[in-house]
Design a protein around this nucleic acid. Sequence first.
RNA 1: CGGGGACUAGUUCAUCGGUAGAACGCCCGCUUUGGGAGCGGGAAGCACAGGGUUCAAUUCCCUGGUCCCCGACCA
Length: 404
Amino acid sequence: MLYSKLFPKTLKQIPSGAESVNHELLARAGFIHQEMAGVYTYLPLGWKVLDKISDIVRDEMNAIGGQEMLMPALHPASNWAKTGRLKTFDALFKVEGAAETDKGKTVLGPTHEEIIYPLLAEYIKSYKDLPLYLYQIQVKFRNEPRAKAGLLRGREFLMKDLYSFHTSDEDRNEYYEKVRDAYFKIFKRIGIPAVKTKASGGTFSDLSEEFQTLTPSGEDTVFICSKEGTAFNKEIIEGAKCPDCGSELKEEKAIEVGNIFPLKRAYAEVFNLSFTDEKGEKKIVSAGCYGLGISRVMGAVVEVFHDEKGIVWPVTVAPYQVHIVGLDGEGEKIYKLLLAERVEVLFDDRIGVSAGAKFADADLLGIPYRVVVSRKTRDKLEIKKRSEKETKFVTLEQLLEVVK
RNA sequence: CGGGGACUAGUUCAUCGGUAGAACGCCCGCUUUGGGAGCGGGAAGCACAGGGUUCAAUUCCCUGGUCCCCGACCA
């Protein structure tokens, strides 16, 4: 990609209202643009990052048998009436409808139990149809009373939701463990440490597990057991000691980036999601649901990986791998060579922009490897990791070795 | 949903009862290229909306809207 063609330009000033680190840096660097409270446009760079995160999530979901699909954002309100959540889910967006006849008949989906359970009820008849693991990556709508902190708490956000359906609780529990492992792999690949945290399961589950990324800007408070390293959400902690072993707990701020629930049979009963077992008996399906906030993860990555100059993307989710800073009109040759090698490369080809401005933009964008090409560098390439201070001079072959 | 703050040029902000200013950005010209360069010229505004007070309101008051922060909330 030629930087001169990239939409949009970076901003020198912090946009008014961008008070959180992730909002400020992502907005200045041109990854996102706020439309209203908790609602953002993902600009070309930001969309690339979301794509990278999504691909990692897909990869791990597919590895545990997940089948990707896409459910609607617009839901029939009648399904929400059936579960009772039309009234109890406070953050539900109720669509007015263009015609009088449509009034109150649809809602925007904040989660998809109300779609996937009736859907499966039409198709699942036999134990032979189970287990089944279905997921989607989709925009969710939750009318948060207080959207805040950039991408960390939006009213419209990108989320992966996986639903699993089983013939027994035992089978469901086994799969639940697999999802947990997959989540650890995902966060490891993305590069953000995530601590498994025990939490309350809300209305429909006794317990759930959250994946929390520790950072001072997080809005959740977790308590970490000094002995076992397990963590507990503030909401289920009563004393200052670990409920499991009695050790001291350390208080930390964190961002919830994922959450897994054993849902049991609550929704399956409402929508009569049942199957016939080997003995010909009719049984209710046992289910689990597993969320992961894709756009929130993008915000969390920035909260964790940044410095005073800008973002420092982990290699696995960076929009590009190499940022060529071309000075003195140089750089095109190496740009084309890297493109031919299928390296994801951004080339700052701007003419008449000072070197300082280009360096500042490179730091702000946070692409992992910066390569400077100028009259001074001659046939050598000056390479610098965004996360490090030192520069070194390498040949093209050495550069390819590093970035591939 | 309670409390606080903000809203003025494309953006970030100044101004302040007497019809508006800077920086950055943008356009033109020249110059310039290793850490957000320089000079000259230019375009750019219903001061969030409505109501009130006043001879006069962007400025003071009220109502509403929007955004941010703190809290409540977060299946």
